[in-house]
Design a protein around this nucleic acid. Structure first.
Lengths: 346, 346
DNA sequence: CTGAAAGCGCTAACAC
DNA sequence: GTGTTAGCGCTTTCAG
């Protein structure tokens, strides 16, 4: 673990000045260096196993090439992972490295400010601020100091660009799947929490029905906690009625998992007696359930990639750093078809 | 987004030299600065909203305070997330920041080398190299240039410290749960893949039985793909026999999920007719299944934390950077009790 | 075409 | 007690 080789060593080995080395290694546009010198430098660098010290480069050029990402609850679901992956790949493609800071959904705003400050001290060129589920946040003040974008979140009145899933459109697509299969008695198992997805998906549900000539406003909706148990309970209630639905749209895959159990207990076979569509596309559940659950995927990867791409544009001045419009970018939620939907029995 | 305030500005505002500012802000041990000067500096820094430029600090002090983590498949399961979280919290507690680089289980060794090189160029103080599931890897050569630790992986002959789950012990604990509940006819649904966990868990299964006075070598074992479908198929085979087991240990939670389905189809109620224990503690599955699945947790968080802690020790010279023993550190896999185990019917 | 030299913001001898 | 100053490794203007 001896001393690292620097540009100086390369210069010495190639018999040129550090300036020249820097010029050729960076393909400096303004540099005019002879081809022979160029290759001399290149081979010298190669042989010495030279690698630039990005810290020094950053200090000098005032560009760290690092994008900060503060992300909530990295460990809880794969959602955060997919945002990170999308952002990572987009950033990498543009020559940037991601620096991820984990925070908690429950973190105080002081600790969030501290996270952003830590990133700022590292001289990140821009910051991505991601939440674990679509919601509105109070963006840390530090975000104003560098280009920044909110991922899966909106922060009213902060003039920050943001990207969120098109919950409404996803719900419509989900219900359309059921509609196209021929179902007319369709119910919705909603979440009880007051978050954008709860409202967006409900609106999408109703509008899809109305748009198909059914009475969306009167369609049965049961709300419960957004987990397997909540789904089980809500499904029991809705399936026990006198004229039970033949198609069931669930707020998320976990509730759908509960609905599967309810159906099994009631002797209802999926999809022969009951068609089910979920939301979120949690691989572990959706693919593990039997039959495989048809669901709607959340564009986490896409949001991460979109945001990183934009952020780099801002950093490089290709896009104004100040947010242009008040609207959040809406990314589509694609349907993932598996085996839980079939035509109605009757 | 104007120019940032530096130590110089603070010095000017406080009417002292930069040295003094540096001394008080870093609580330099050797510095003798009067209390009044100290507070003058502190308030000046405070008022100006000064924050150090960690890049410059790092360049000068030859310590970046960054720990690199190359982690596989961040987005696929929460496992990588838990390693990251554990490492992040341990690193943070010691004043370090994590720089996470995503790689793929399928990545070429060239690309892995490149990932490590990128980290090295950023002057990370040490590197954590994590795989998504316990396996043996060919560690990138670059890891020799800084302190490094393997997480969830071993690399024979590289002299690298590493930490992995105690698969064997976890399996024994899982089977012991079944044994203590009174079961004597216990079967194992194993994975067909040739990875350490497959072998470790099988050994644990057999030894636990033998240790209890049963014939571990003759106990029924069915192997299949480690997912819900494989579990379903293997469980069908094993449950269809003439003297079916009353206790079932599954290689992982996904296979257990399949076993639940098989049991349901055979009219077997869990845990009344069949007790089931899984492995991995994949929250989404284990807690979502009904009844909740008793399983064994993989110590991902713990491995990340242990490794980061050690790595910092190495970086700070509190631990030799070269690996001491040839053995990987084994972390225990704790049992997570839910509701899938009861006494046998007979 | 190539090189000297001035810093980027900070730390830490060393001098006063 | 406090200040001067020489770099850390690199980029880039400006001379030659």
């Amino acid at each position: 673990m001896g001393r690292n080789i620097g540009i100086k060593d390369v210069a010495l080995a190639a018999g040129v000045s550090v300036t020249t080395v820097s010029h050729v290694l960076n393909d400096a546009a303004y540099a005019r260096v002879s081809p022979e010198t160029r290759s001399k430098v290149r081979t010298a660098a190669e042989e010495l196993g030279y690698g630039p010290n990005r810290l020094a480069q950053a200090l000098r050029s005032r560009r760290s090439g690092i994008l900060g990402l503060v992300s909530e609850d990295i460990a809880t679901t794969p959602h955060a992972g997919r945002i990170i992956l999308g952002a990572d790949e987009a950033a990498r493609a543009r020559g940037y490295t991601l620096m991820v800071i984990n925070t908690f959904g429950t973190a105080s705003s002081t600790s969030r400010e501290a996270d952003v400050r830590a990133l700022l001290e590292r001289q990140v060129d821009g910051i991505l601020y991601a939440t674990m589920y679509h919601r509105t946040v109070h963006a840390p003040a530090g975000l104003a100091k560098v280009p920044a974008i909110l991922v899966d979140a909106v922060s009213p009145g902060h003039g920050l660009a943001s990207v969120v899933p098109d919950q409404y459109g996803g719900a419509r697509a989900a219900v359309d799947i059921l509609l196209s299969a021929g179902h007319t008695r369709i119910a919705y198992l909603n979440n009880t929490e007051d978050v954008p997805s709860t409202h967006g998906r409900l609106r999408g549900f109703r509008d899809a029905l109305t748009n198909a000539g059914l009475d969306g406003g009167a369609a049965p909706v049961e709300a419960a906690a957004p987990d397997a148990r909540g789904g089980y309970e809500a499904a029991c209630r809705i399936l026990a009625g006198s004229n039970p639905p033949s198609g069931l749209f669930c707020y998320n895959d976990r509730m759908a998992m509960g609905a599967y159990r309810a159906a099994a207990e009631l002797g209802l076979s999926i999809p022969a007696d009951l068609s089910v569509v979920g939301f979120d596309d949690q691989e572990l559940i959706a693919a593990g359930l039997y039959p495989g659950l048809t669901t709607v995927a959340l564009p986490h990867y896409g949001m991460g990639a979109w945001a990183a791409e934009r952020l780099v544009d801002m950093v490089e001045g290709k896009l104004p750093a100040e947010h242009t419009g008040p609207e959040a970018m809406l990314l589509p939620c694609p349907v993932v078809s598996r085996a839980s939907v079939a035509g109605p029995r009757d």
